[in-house]
């Protein structure tokens, strides 16, 4: 009798439990669903009367691929992709390099350098923006992707902590053994530690790849020649929300948002496992 009762309550709590998650997921997805619906609206402006568009259409997507002077989505996508790839390579390298040096190796400047990094991380990045702009201008790198890539990746070494935390979990004895066998540090780095740290590499790659897709502040500042075909996706879409343009481009904005999110979501699905392991491997020991 008693056993049976327990089973009953179990079943009902399981249902309740899953319904609760469902409700939460529903709340979380409302804006995303709205984004998706609005992107299929036949009306170009913002609809604030109903949740679902009154008339459905794929016009938003169609016009997105027929560039005019404002919207040059395919071009933006290519631009951002190039910037993102370059940023991704450089940032990942920098982060892993710094993380390895500070985690596996021991040298006298290690602590002071790490303390410097902590201090530098406390300054608001927004503030340095104007100065960064002038530094780039000095090197004649404004309005160029090289400049943008540098902004995204040059200081990436400062974000080494999570990767360092992960490397800290690599058994020290393994490295020592390799050293005794006469392995150079470079070989230990490339052939031992990196292959053992797939999750954190993936985590770093995703994170640095995403930055150019999300950032609109720095990009707006650096690509300031007003030439639409040179924009990244983020500024291109952001400019569509200009007062004069909003009414004609809101649906395209939503469509663009959806198109950007799709590859990122896929990236997340594939990498989810690594991502979680990478984050936590680093955060746990951090």
């Amino acid at each position: 009798m008693k056993v049976k009762k327990m089973k009953d309550s179990r079943l009902s709590t399981i249902i309740l439990h899953n319904v609760l998650i469902g409700v939460l997921a529903f709340i979380w997805l409302i804006p995303i669903v709205w984004l998706l619906c609005t992107s299929f609206s036949a009306y170009t402006g913002m609809n604030s009367k109903t949740f679902f568009p009154e008339k459905w259409s794929i016009q938003g997507y169609v016009s997105l691929f027929h560039p005019d002077t404002v919207a040059q989505f395919p071009q933006w996508f290519i631009n951002t992709f190039i910037v993102a790839c370059a940023t991704c390579v450089i940032s990942t390298m920098f982060v892993l390099m710094v993380a390895y040096a500070t985690s596996i190796m021991r040298f006298p400047m290690r602590k002071p350098l790490m303390n410097m990094a902590v201090i530098l991380n406390l300054f608001p990045g927004m503030l340095a923006m104007i100065a960064v702009y002038f530094v780039l201008k000095t090197f004649n790198l404004t309005n160029s992707y090289a400049g943008l890539i540098m902004v995204y990746s040059a200081s990436s070494g400062l974000g080494y902590l999570i990767a360092k935390g992960f490397f800290d979990t690599v058994p020290r004895a393994l490295c020592e053994a390799a050293r005794i066998d006469g392995c150079s540090e470079a070989r230990i780095f490339f052939q031992m530690v990196i292959p053992m740290s797939r999750p954190i590499v993936v985590y770093t790659v995703i994170n640095s790849f995403l930055a150019p897709w999300m950032d609109f502040v720095f990009a707006k500042m650096i690509l300031n020649a007003g030439v639409s075909s040179k924009y990244t996706v983020a500024i291109g879409l952001y400019k569509m929300l200009d007062k004069q343009l909003l009414n004609d481009y809101f649906t395209q904005f939503c469509a663009g948002g959806v198109l950007v999110s799709i590859p990122i979501s896929i990236l997340f699905i594939i990498m989810q496992k690594f991502y979680v392991e990478g984050i936590t491997g680093g955060a746990v020991k951090g």
Partner: peptide, 26 residues
């Protein structure tokens, strides 16, 4: 520089990046 001083090889570029794009602006 690939052996006991490998950290120098590793750190030079990242540190330089931080100096030019973070330290000097700040």
């Amino acid at each position: 520089y690939v052996g006991e001083k490998f950290h120098i090889t590793l750190l030079t570029l990242p540190v330089l990046g931080v100096i030019v794009f973070t330290l000097i602006p700040i």
